[in-house]
């Protein structure tokens, strides 16, 4: 008896920063190395969370690690991200988070007050998101072996009734719904690092999107085909993943994509594409055309959802591609992000 050897397609000689940046390199790593060795013969496209069956009960499970510099930034901190990020990964998989477990990797020498502030931030975020923190673990590494602190959270959730999401269910004509303005988190972090010496009144958008997802589920449950929170790699990367997974095209109206002036200004100044910038409190949903108006109204009527907008639609062609159209008739292909967004001068 011989077990067929899993096919490893990952050929990069070493791990680079880009492998963690949520773009093409990340995808190569996950699909070329992790999936064949860890996820067996599953051919399901890789989502943010997995729904598994335990003795007849379906549960959703996910885990995420948080590495951010600086630890605190306008509008949030690593602790808050660690709770909201995992709650959101479950939410966009169609599940309500029930409990989280947390692992801290702490650098020796970390002032207690910094740790305490983050633990408090987590407690507060968990209360706000309506999820309990059920346990965890702590490791301390030598000074210089970690950037002050890393947090990993794993979450378990129960499916929101009536929702069945998959890229395969997406059809041409479905609408692309975005919950609010893009780029706040990524640009806030970029500015908070201080290297670029730019200042702006801007806050991270970190929050639990669960209330919005639940409102959407009440208004258009069977019309929701697919959801994703466009964190690293931004809206462009999430939609490219969708386009690839469902074999359809995505046509965006670029002028409709909401963004704050400061985000736009920073992107113009630094030569960045706002569609590549990370978000921590927004999500994308693909909605069947006949449910789209109800879905949009439901989001707009929910606190924190008033800036929701339909930004485009799914189309037969160009298959596997995201296309942006401007109001004056120009189109461009919107690609996935390759590595981290870097400011450019050219």
């Amino acid at each position: 008896m011989s077990i067929p050897l899993p096919k490893i397609r990952f050929r990069d000689p070493q791990i680079e920063m880009a492998h963690g940046a949520g773009g093409k390199a990340s995808r190569r790593l996950v699909e070329g190395l992790f999936a064949p060795l860890l996820f067996g013969s599953s051919t399901e496209p890789l989502g943010d969370a997995a729904h598994i069956n335990l003795n007849g009960t379906c549960v959703a499970i996910t885990a995420d690690s948080f590495v951010v510099k600086p630890l605190r930034f306008p509008g949030g901190s690593i602790g808050e991200l660690a709770v909201n990020g995992t709650v959101n990964d479950l939410a966009v998989s169609g599940a309500r988070a029930q409990a989280l477990v947390v692992t801290y990797v702490l650098e020796s020498g970390l002032p207690t007050e910094i740790l305490e502030a983050e633990v408090r931030a987590m407690a507060k975020a968990a209360e706000r998101a309506g999820v309990s923190i059920a346990g965890g673990d702590t490791k301390v590494v030598e000074h210089g072996k970690a950037d002050r602190m890393y947090i990993t959270t794993a979450g378990i959730g129960l499916p929101i009734p009536g929702i069945a999401l998959s890229a395969a269910s997406v059809r041409p004509g479905d609408k692309v719904l975005l919950s609010g303005p893009i780029g706040d988190h990524g640009i806030t972090i970029l500015l908070a690092r201080g290297d670029l010496e730019l200042e702006a009144d801007l806050c991270s958008d970190t929050r639990s999107v669960l209330p919005l997802v639940e409102a959407l589920a009440r208004a258009a449950a069977t019309g929701i085909r697919w959801m994703r929170d466009p964190t690293r790699g931004g809206v462009a990367t999430s939609l490219n993943e969708l386009a690839r997974d469902c074999g359809l095209g995505v046509l965006l109206s670029e002028d409709k994509i909401p963004m704050r002036d400061t985000v736009r200004g920073a992107c113009e100044l630094l030569g960045l594409d706002p569609l590549h910038i990370a978000n921590e409190g927004q999500f994308l949903a693909i909605i069947a055309a006949e449910h789209a108006d109800a879905a949009l109204e439901a989001l707009k009527g929910t606190p924190g959802g008033h800036e929701a907008v339909i930004i485009g639609e799914m189309c037969e062609q160009p298959a596997g591609t995201v296309l942006g159209a401007t109001s004056y008739g120009g189109t461009r292909v919107i690609d996935m992000l390759v590595g981290d967004p870097l400011p450019r001068i050219c």
Binding site: C315, Q317, T321, L323, A325, T331, R332, V333, D335
Partner: peptide
């Protein structure tokens, strides 16, 4: 590579949509 070559292959089909 990023824009044109993929777009060229599909431009006709989206002509109506854009």
């Amino acid at each position: 590579f990023n824009y044109e070559h993929r777009k060229a292959a599909v431009l006709t089909s989206i002509g109506a949509a854009v």
